[in-house]
Amino acid sequence: MTEGTSPYVSPARVTVLGVQPGDPPFRIVEIDGEVVSTARSMTDVIFTAAALGITIHDLDDPGEVRWVGGSKFHWRAP
């Protein structure tokens, strides 16, 4: 396999990990590879990023936010 066929990995500064069980369920938010908070909604992700000086213009842009274990609409534990 050559580098030209390697899968693309998003350079997003914000990563939202999969849903964690809890009451209510939550997702862990990483910025620049460090865990910074938990989120219970899309707005929590936006506010967390803004508090750290990152403006998110498009939650669907994989260059801005990387969603792991479900999309921006996935907030319930399996």
Rank of each mutant, 00 (worst) to 15 (best):
T5V: 12
S6L: 15
S6V: 09
S6R: 15
P7A: 12
P7F: 08
P7H: 07
P7V: 12
Y8K: 09
Y8F: 15
Y8W: 15
V9M: 07
V9A: 03
V9S: 06
S10V: 04
S10M: 06
S10L: 04
A12P: 03
V14L: 01
T15Y: 00
T15E: 15
T15K: 15
V16M: 07
L17E: 15
L17F: 10
V19F: 03
P21V: 02
P21Y: 03
D23V: 01
D23S: 07
P24N: 08
P24H: 05
P24S: 09
P24G: 08
F26V: 05
F26T: 08
F26P: 00
R27I: 09
R27E: 08
R27A: 13
R27H: 07
V29W: 04
E30R: 15
E30N: 12
I31T: 02
D32I: 10
G33E: 14
V35R: 10
V36H: 03
S37E: 14
A39D: 10
S41M: 04
M42D: 08
T43A: 02
T43E: 10
T43P: 00
T43C: 00
T43H: 11
D44A: 13
D44N: 13
V45T: 03
I46N: 01
I46F: 05
T48W: 01
A49R: 02
A49T: 01
A51Y: 00
A51N: 14
A51L: 05
A51F: 00
L52C: 00
L52E: 04
L52V: 00
L52K: 05
L52G: 00
G53F: 02
G53W: 03
G53K: 06
I54C: 04
T55E: 15
T55I: 11
T55Q: 14
T55M: 11
I56L: 14
H57Q: 13
H57N: 15
D58A: 11
L59D: 12
L59M: 15
D61S: 07
G63I: 00
V65E: 03
R66K: 14
W67S: 01
W67V: 01
W67K: 00
G69D: 08
G69F: 12
G70D: 02
G70M: 04
G70L: 04
K72R: 15
K72E: 10
F73E: 13
H74F: 10
R76N: 08
A77V: 06
P78W: 12
P78C: 13
